[in-house]
């Protein structure tokens, strides 16, 4: 597999959220506005790229790798937890509003299955550079996915797009034009499940339509 593929496979083919369905908790909780989704994406990007880098550095030395292998999961968790603490402190210092609105979900990046999953499945068996590229691709794929969900929810639920801080696009004129109000449900918890379910189903349908007919039929016959 070449370098470019390592980078781009996280976007669509192995998208962590829509294809492997990992890391559900943050993707449901922080998608009420675009700003929160971008903030979460940033945090995950930082942690995932660095954790992939450090894990692959540790595991690429055969002597250390042999020592670490039996206790590798606790080791990964400590590496990840340290990086998450750094993110938490940086956000507290420089992006306080975002820190407040993301709340408990910043420390919870530790238990985000995507990060531990990439450390175990990819970084522990590949070179540092490949692992960094893989981490970047996966993090961008994750960010893209939560941005998509948050746009869907915020536009339908509040009629706005909060890009960053006070930079808000107001789309309420569309609702006014149609003589309806934004649908509150979409920014409430129930709307998170609904939006994710609808988007996932749409993507599955699109994915199925691209597959050659024979494969789809074969899959049905096996079920």
């Amino acid at each position: 597999m070449n370098k470019l593929q390592n980078f781009t496979k996280g976007f669509i083919k192995e998208n962590p959220l829509f294809v492997t369905v990992l890391g559900m908790c943050p993707s449901l909780a922080v998608t009420t506005s675009l700003e929160k989704a971008l903030g979460m994406g940033m945090g995950v990007f930082f942690v995932l790229v660095l954790s992939n880098f450090i894990v692959s550095l540790v595991m690429s030395n055969p002597k250390i790798a042999e020592l670490v292998r039996p206790v590798r999961i606790p080791v990964y968790i400590v590496i990840i937890a340290t990086l998450v603490t750094i993110v938490e402190m940086l956000m507290h210092a420089f992006l306080y509003d975002l820190y407040k609105s993301l709340g408990v979900f910043i420390p919870l990046i530790v238990v985000n299955c995507i990060i531990l999953g990439r450390a175990e499945a990819f970084a522990s068996e590949n070179k540092p550079l490949d692992s960094v590229l893989d981490g970047m691709g996966m993090a961008l794929g994750f960010t893209g996915a939560i941005v998509l969900i948050s746009l869907f929810r915020e536009i339908l639920g509040a009629g706005t797009i909060t890009i960053w801080g006070n930079l808000v696009l107001n789309l309420n004129f569309i609702f006014n034009f149609l003589h309806i109000k934004p649908i509150d449900l979409f920014v409430q918890p129930a709307g998170a499940f609904l939006s994710f379910g609808l988007i996932l189903a749409t993507l599955t349908a699109i994915g199925n339509s691209f597959k050659p007919k024979s494969i789809v039929k074969g899959a049905t016959a096996n079920e």
Binding site: F196, G197, L200, A201, T204
Partner: peptide, 11 residues
């Protein structure tokens, strides 16, 4: 078909 599995569970 498109809703089978996780999508319908989420809804």
């Amino acid at each position: 078909k498109a809703f089978q599995g996780i999508p319908i569970a989420l809804i």
